[in-house]
Design a protein around this nucleic acid. Structure first.
Lengths: 196, 196
DNA sequence: CCAAAAAGCTAAAGGCATTAGCCGAAGGTG
DNA sequence: CACCTTCGGCTAATGCCTTTAGCTTTTTGG
């Protein structure tokens, strides 16, 4: 091996720094090369091109989210787990808004691997509601859509009004938890109230 | 006035063509200029720069969504209106996936005007549930997050599994409608699931 | 000590955004 | 009708970024 300064992983590390500090639009090979103390073309020894770097960044982010969310659900189940999951996911987006905006779903081969891990955590959490496999898929999509939508909007500063986003999110959590409970096979609640 | 060939509106029209056909990443002043049959620098007579063009495109898209959603809600109320609203919103994203991906929330002055119109429709729809103003804001955020999240994911082809997205979305609609009904002032549920 | 591979460098091409300054056409005015 | 102002287009030029090609240096394993 030659000078062990850089590696694909380190390049992704630096790319994340750039994203965090300057936003996804500033993620450029030049910017990363500067931080690496290296000329831009040298990066091609570690990464195929900018598109691939973006993909690696997305994969890394997805992995990080899966880590946090997976940890959050440990030892919890049903509504409790859903609340923990949603809270952890949003917290990640809040702490790294640029990073979250850089997240792109366009599934490359490796990105979908990280995505599958995250999806697995979602599905495992939802199985506690006693759904069949197909219902789990649909419910997981809904949960993911709600969380992702909220996180994206918040990361993009789309909530202009003075109302606390925390309160809005708490409402979303309750809506999702209630909706999932309603899917549980068994006696449905009579009223349209809390658990309905 | 000189040759009335181009105008800011026409430039946005052409930009939308580019986005529809080639995706948001291909929205470039050169590409738009080509379609206009004009040299790239000429566009600066109609648009301040690429960033502004992107903003105008977003504004136009937001306006279109507000049109469709507003029309869909006409004469409906409560759950019925929510279903129509969510369906119309998603249909727009399905019919113009690239366009939807090009939508960016970063509120410029005019974009927020179109956004305010859309928000107004949402709020008016939710007021049928008898919420107070603050509750409407929180509920509107949740609804927006859920719809937007689903639409983004679907537009980015993030649903890989064979299960029908239509079914998933129907579930999301039911979850949101149920959740909103549960907010209606009235006899609170006995369990801790409700307002906790 | 030597050779091969890894990792860096410079040079160069090509695309795009943006600025500056020029020119011709349209329209109104006297 | 002649004029002149303004509008909208053009060319030239700059600078940034990606990407390819080919050279050089360093490291490492035998």
């Amino acid at each position: 091996m030659a000078r062990a300064a850089l590696s694909a992983d380190v390049v992704v590390d630096l790319a994340l720094q750039v994203v965090d500090e300057l936003g996804p639009a500033a993620l450029t090979l030049s910017a990363v090369a500067d931080r690496a103390g290296v000329a831009a073309p040298s990066l091609y020894k570690h990464v195929r091109n900018l598109a691939e770097l973006r993909g690696l960044v997305s994969t890394r982010i997805t992995d990080e989210i899966a880590d946090r969310v997976g940890e959050a659900v440990l030892g919890r189940s049903a509504d409790d787990a859903v609340r923990a999951l949603m809270t952890a996911w949003r917290r990640y987006a809040q702490r790294h808004p640029h990073r979250y905006s850089a997240l792109v779903q366009t599934s490359g081969p490796r990105t979908s691997e990280a995505g599958a891990r995250l999806l697995g955590i979602l599905s495992a959490t939802l199985r506690a509601y006693g759904m069949d496999d197909s219902a789990v898929v649909h419910a997981a999509r809904c949960l993911r859509a709600a969380v992702h939508g909220f996180a994206v909007l918040e990361a993009e500063n789309a909530f202009g009004l003075p109302e606390q986003p925390d309160e809005s999110y708490d409402l979303l959590i309750r809506m999702m938890a209630a909706g999932l409970s309603a899917l549980r096979p068994g006696p449905p609640p009579a009223t349209g109230g809390g658990d309905g």
